[in-house]
Amino acid sequence: MPTNKKEGLIFGSLMCFLMVLGMSIYNLVIHNSFSLVALATGLVPGFVVAFILDNFVVGIVAKKIAFSLPINKESKLQLILTISTFMILGMVTFMSLFGMLMEGGIPADFLGTYLKTWGMNLIAAFLYQLLIVGPFSRLVLGWVQNNAADDSAEEAA
């Protein structure tokens, strides 16, 4: 877990970018419209929106909910899984709507299309976050934290 704002920014940005990248590729592939141009076109606005939602809406609410639940907060695994679950639920809820609007506006069967989109994105995002992006981002964060500790030890010597 990040221990300061710099680590939080690195961790959050990496996690956000990788999730937007992976989910963009997933959605383009399942809609048979993958191209590097389509990926690049959607990636920047998707990352900006996801970063804002993550840092100012969903992340705050997800952490409040997670810390209010009767879980063992001393257990890193329980805390990570709880926060991640609420983050995934919130981000999929907003980003599915964002993707639909970017793709073609509000469809005639909005509710049906949204629920289908939300369900398909939830499954993919949950697996992608818990199995790939989360562990990778925590690995990078650990590397950043270890390098910061090494730098501090060298400065003290």
Score class of each variant (00 low, 15 high):
Ile123Lys: 12
Gly12Glu: 11
Ile132Thr: 09
Leu122Tyr: 11
Ala38Arg: 04
Ala153Trp: 06
Met87Leu: 15
Ser75His: 05
Phe136Cys: 11
Gly105Tyr: 10
Lys6Ile: 13
Ser68Glu: 02
Phe126Ile: 07
Ser33Asp: 13
Gly90Gln: 01
Phe67Gln: 04
Ile25Pro: 12
Ser13Met: 04
Ile30Arg: 15
Asn32Leu: 12
Leu36Ser: 06
Leu101Lys: 01
Ala153Cys: 01
Pro45Trp: 00
Ser84Phe: 02
Thr41Asp: 08
Ala66Glu: 00
Leu130Gln: 15
Thr41Val: 06
Lys116Leu: 08
Ser13Glu: 03
Ser137Gly: 12
Leu101Ala: 06
Val48Pro: 01
Met95Trp: 03
Ile25Met: 14
Leu21Glu: 13
Ser137Leu: 08
Cys16Val: 05
Leu101Glu: 00
Lys6Cys: 14
Ala149Cys: 10
Met87Asn: 03
Asn147Ala: 14
Lys63Met: 05
Pro70Thr: 05
Gly22Asn: 02
Thr113Lys: 03
Met15Tyr: 08
His31Met: 06
His31Thr: 11
Lys5Cys: 05
Phe110Arg: 01
Ala153Asn: 08
Gln129Arg: 08
Val48Gln: 03
Lys6Arg: 08
Gly105Asp: 04
Lys76His: 13
Ser96Met: 02
Glu74Gly: 15
Ala157Asn: 14
Ala50Arg: 00
Phe34Val: 06
Cys16Ser: 13
Pro2Ser: 15
Leu130Asn: 14
Ser152Asp: 14
Ile132Cys: 14
Lys116Pro: 05
Asn121Leu: 11
Ala148Thr: 13
Lys116Ser: 15
Lys6Ser: 08
Phe136Lys: 06
Leu139Arg: 09
Phe17Arg: 00
Leu115Ser: 00
Leu141Phe: 10
Thr117Val: 15
Leu9Ser: 04
Ile123Tyr: 10
Phe47Gln: 01
Leu122Val: 11
Ala124Met: 15
Met23Thr: 14
Leu130Pro: 09
Phe17Tyr: 04
Val57Arg: 02
Asn55Gly: 03
Ile123Ser: 10
Leu69Gly: 09
Ala149Gly: 06
Arg138Asp: 08
Leu127Asn: 12
Asp150Tyr: 13
Glu154Phe: 11
Pro135Ala: 12
Lys63Ile: 03
Lys5Arg: 13
Ile106Val: 09
Ser68Arg: 04
Ile80Ala: 09
Gly46Leu: 01
Ala40Asn: 12
Ala156Tyr: 09
Lys73Asn: 12
Ser33Pro: 04
Ile88Trp: 02
Pro135Cys: 07
Phe98Leu: 03
Asp54Lys: 04
Trp143Ala: 14
Pro107Trp: 01
Lys63His: 02
Asn4Val: 10
Ser137Asp: 11
Leu101Ile: 01
Lys5His: 12
Tyr128Pro: 10
Leu14His: 07
Phe94Thr: 05
Ser68Asp: 04
Lys73Ser: 15
Leu9Glu: 07
Leu89Ser: 06
His31Leu: 12
Ser24Gly: 08
Ala40Gly: 15
Met91Arg: 00
Met120Asp: 15
Leu89Met: 07
Asn27Tyr: 05
Leu14Asp: 07
Phe136Gly: 10
Ile83Glu: 01
Leu127Ala: 15
Gly8Cys: 05
Leu28Gly: 05
His31Glu: 07
Gln78Pro: 02
